[in-house]
Design a protein around this nucleic acid. Structure first.
Lengths: 117, 117
DNA sequence: GAAATATTTCTATATATCTGGAAATATGGA
DNA sequence: TCCATATTTCCAGATATATAGAAATATTTC
C-alpha cells in the first residue's frame, strides 16, 4: 500500500465519531447497518453522519449498497487488513515474517464468506 | 483502550511526515535514531520534526532517551499493538478469538527483549 | 403524480492542525 | 567560562477538518 492511502485511512479513523461508526460496522458484519439507523444510534444529524460515511468510504474502509430507500453500510475488512499490514510490515529490521505473517492483506479478519464485499 | 487514546494514536499516524518517521523508527528497532538524524534523513527543519515527535510521543507511539547531546527516539511497539488490538477487538460479532488472538496487546511485534522500553 | 421517507449535496462558520523562523534550553568540550 | 552542537519552545500565518441548516435527489407507497 502507498503511504498516501494509509494516511487517508488513518485520517478517516482519527475522529471519535467516525471511529465509533467504523467499530459499529465492524461488529455488525456483512449484514451492515442503514445510514439512518446509525445516525439514530449516535443521535447525529443525518447530513453530518453522511459526511462521515463519505470519508470512511473514500478511504476504502466501508462500502455501501442500496436497499429500498435505505443505504446500507458495511465495513471493508480487506481495507482494514491492508492498513494493519502496512503499519507492521517493516517491523523488526525488515523481517516481517517474524511478527506479521498473520497480518497479511489476504488473511481476512472474518471467516471467508462473511466479509465479501 | 479508551477510544480517546485510539483517536490520539490514529491522529498521530494520520500525517505523511509522522507516519514516515514512525515507520522508520519501527524499522530501526530498540536502538532508535537521534532526532537530528531523522530530520536530516527527511530534509525537515529540526523544529518541525520536533513538533511531530512530540505528537507521536504524547500519543504513546514513541519514547525517547537522552544520549549525550542527542535525544534518541524509539518506537513503542506496545502502544502500536494496543491500537491494532483496539481496531480489531470487536470484529465478527464480538468474537475476537476468531480473528484477533494474534493481535493481543501482550503479543509483542518484535521478539521478546528486543522491544522493552 | 403527490406525499412520505431516506440520504446526500451545497454552503458557511467554527475549530484544529501544519509549518517554520526566531529565541530559549541543555549538553559536551576547549 | 565560552563556544559549538542538539533539540525544544514560542509564536503566527496558512491550510485543513468538523459540523449542521437548507435544499436537492432518490425511492416507495397511496
Amino acid at each position: 500500500m502507498e503511504s498516501e492511502i494509509a494516511v487517508k485511512r488513518l485520517s478517516a479513523l482519527a475522529q471519535e465519531g467516525r471511529l465509533a461508526v467504523f467499530k459499529l460496522l465492524v461488529q455488525a458484519g456483512a449484514e451492515g447497518i442503514a445510514a439512518g439507523e446509525i445516525a439514530r444510534r449516535f443521535g447525529m444529524p443525518s447530513n453530518t453522519l453522511s459526511a462521515q460515511l463519505t470519508i470512511l468510504s473514500n478511504a476504502g474502509l466501508v462500502a455501501s449498497r442500496r436497499e429500498g430507500r435505505s443505504i446500507i453500510y458495511t465495513a471493508c475488512y480487506d481495507g482494514m487488513g491492508e492498513l494493519l499490514f502496512y503499519l507492521t510490515e517493516e517491523c523488526c529490521q525488515g523481517r516481517p515474517e517474524i511478527c506479521a505473517p498473520f497480518l497479511s492483506p489476504t488473511a481476512a479478519c472474518c471467516p471467508p464468506g462473511e466479509n465479501d464485499r
